[in-house]
Design a protein around this nucleic acid. Structure first.
Length: 304
DNA sequence: AGAGGCACCTGTTCGC
DNA sequence: TGCGAACAGGTGCCTC
């Protein structure tokens, strides 16, 4: 469930349960998720107080009183559930009826305030790591990571600088976490639609020959902020799983204009277009061929 | 450099 | 109803 808005939704849900509480009991039920857990994972966590819970791109960062940071990534199917006194607030969801554990409950945090936080991840593409706070910026997860799309750095100016000269498709450039970190398949499709940009247009077309932002680059920066902010406000998008830590659903999926709407009518007033699905680097892209004009680049010239 | 493909996993949905 | 194929919110590593 994890693009930036879903991770931020999880962060906001976990914050009141975890910050200021001590990890009294940690259960690690397998040696690895996508990667092995770090050495002595449980020992390094138990007894520590969680002093802050932050987010960088799609990563959750729990600061510990030991000076280490617990880094958590949800992969494709990672979910957190908060329950009180060991009882799930959603019996039978992914906890069993008798308060037992589900098949994919991989890590359980027992907290000094009585809350239990369970990490569940069917596909195990998520992972956790422990890194000293002083090494966060340079650690393997964050060195080379792109700008934060809800931060001050995102602007038409920055987009032009990052994309200038690139012939890679806009869709791929926006998904590249080394440039802008936090966007995924859904919000890239939605942002391109709202900006009226074709997903196959070359990324470099958002910069002028002098490297200045085009009008579309400025628009795109605003639209990215807007769509992410709206999604966070809506509690994220719920596709296959709950989005929130109390088991409730996000509802931004009802606001999708193109994502997963192949064959549907374009929502732009007056537009007679139909949403198209195409595959770019192995992933579905949804767009309206009428609102998102075909690129003028060489690829299309060749094809046409 | 950068673009595509596959790999990592399990679960769900769709078509025959 | 069953069964295989395709697909899914991410990313890392390998080719060419």
């Amino acid at each position: 469930m994890p693009e930036l808005p879903e991770v931020e939704t999880v962060r906001r849900g976990l914050e009141p349960a975890m910050v200021g509480a001590r990890l009294t009991k940690v259960v690690q039920r397998r040696p690895d998720l996508r990667f092995p857990f770090p050495d002595r994972f449980v020992e390094r966590l138990e007894g520590q107080e969680v002093t802050a819970l932050g987010r960088r791109a799609k990563y959750l960062l729990a600061d510990l009183s030991s000076g280490e940071v617990l880094i958590m990534h949800l992969g494709m199917s990672g979910r957190f559930l908060v329950s009180q006194s060991g009882k799930s607030v959603m019996p039978g969801e992914f906890h069993h009826e008798h308060g037992g554990l589900g098949a994919h409950d991989h890590v359980i945090f027992g907290l000094s305030n009585g809350a239990t936080v369970t990490y569940n991840d069917a596909r195990r593409f998520g992972f956790m790591d422990l890194v000293p706070r002083s090494e966060i910026e340079t650690c393997r997860h964050f060195s080379g990571m792109g700008i934060e799309p809800l931060g001050n750095e995102l602007s038409g100016e920055t987009i032009a600088r990052l994309f200038a000269g690139k012939r890679t498709p806009l869709k791929a450039a926006l998904l590249d976490q080394r440039l802008i970190a936090g966007l995924g398949n859904i919000y890239v499709c939605e942002a391109l639609f709202r900006t009226g940009l074709h997903p196959e247009a070359p990324a470099g077309s958002l910069a002028t020959a002098k490297g200045r932002p085009t009008e579309k680059a400025d628009q795109l920066a605003g639209v990215i902020r807007e769509v992410l902010a709206e999604a966070v406000e809506a509690g994220g998008s719920t596709l296959r799983d709950h989005a929130q830590v109390d088991g409730s659903l996000g509802y931004f999926q009802h606001s999708f204009r193109v994502y997963d709407r192949e064959g549907g009518a374009c929502v732009t007033p007056g537009c007679t277009g139909t949403v198209i699905r195409l595959v770019q680097s192995g992933r579905s892209t949804f767009y309206c061929p009428q609102c998102q004009a075909a690129p003028q680049g060489s690829a299309r010239r060749r094809a046409g």
